[in-house]
């Protein structure tokens, strides 16, 4: 029986409903996803939620055609989630350019002992097995300073009817896993922290202390060893 534990907290100073990270899962179907809405775009939290919910609804992504379906359906949900006409003038100015988000989704097949990981940007999947860990995408701590790849919602008001091409391509990988393996899905601030210094020890401390890890995040932020950002992490034991 697959177990899932998760934590999603806003950056210090923001309220929980201002968290622009999103996550979704269906342990019965082996579906897990996180997304990080880009805070300098508009309605980014809604866009991140549209992506994770759609990933769960369509049963994951296994090929590039599925990814196009994910983006198209998510765009429809995002557009319906906003009351465009009621927005004040300065919000309308900003929504024209649409919203952006990173995305990481995993489908774990418990019959074939395979998993398929799909990612755009710097949210990371850590696959832990008896020999260590593998991270998707293959990031190093210093890579997090660059602008990540992002999925675009398409234009917002007043350009909703303009054609919004889907240019971005996701990386999709299929790998094997074994009994006893674990998966950690994390948005960028947590991923970067995990990869710095001693990743194996940090992952062990995350797994052992998961239930109180929210307090640990507060402490790490105060020490400035973790960036003050929305943090989402999900631990999956299939």
């Amino acid at each position: 029986m697959t177990s899932v534990r998760y934590l999603s907290v806003p950056k210090v100073g923001n309220r929980p409903n201002e968290n622009e990270d999103s996550f979704a899962f269906s342990e019965d179907r082996g579906i897990f996803a996180v997304s990080d809405g880009a805070s300098d775009s508009s309605f980014a939290g809604q866009w991140a939620r549209a992506l994770t919910a759609t990933f769960s609804e369509i049963g994951g992504v296994h090929e590039s055609g599925d990814f196009m379906t994910l983006v198209k359906r998510s765009r429809e949900i995002w557009k319906k989630s906003v009351e465009w006409g009621a927005l004040p003038w300065f919000v309308k100015n900003k929504v024209t350019g649409g919203a952006y988000a990173t995305f990481l989704g995993v489908h774990v097949n418990t019959s074939l002992y395979e998993f398929t990981v799909t990612f755009v940007g710097d949210s990371c999947l850590f696959h832990l097995d008896e020999s260590g860990y593998t991270v998707y995408p293959n990031m190093k701590p210093e890579d997090f300073k660059f602008n990540p790849k992002l999925i675009w919602s398409g234009y917002g008001y007043p350009s909703l009817e303009k054609v919004s091409p889907i240019k971005i391509e996701a990386s999709i990988s299929r790998r094997k896993w074994k009994n006893g393996d674990s998966f950690i899905l994390a948005t960028d601030a947590m991923s970067k922290w995990l990869l710095e210094d001693d990743p194996m020890e940090k992952m062990a401390s995350l797994i052992e202390g998961f239930d109180t890890f929210g307090e640990k995040v507060d402490q790490l932020r105060k020490e400035k060893t973790m960036r003050n950002d929305d943090v989402t992490v999900m631990l999956v034991n299939p």
């Binding site: 003038w89 300065f90 100015n93 024209t96 350019g97 675009w152 234009y155 350009s159 091409p165 240019k167």
Partner: peptide, 17 residues
């Protein structure tokens, strides 16, 4: 002008305060 998502630019209306 805003990005058209394909490396080009398109014109969109906005309100200048």
């Amino acid at each position: 002008k805003v990005s058209d998502g394909e490396g080009g630019l398109i014109d969109v209306d906005y309100e200048l305060g």
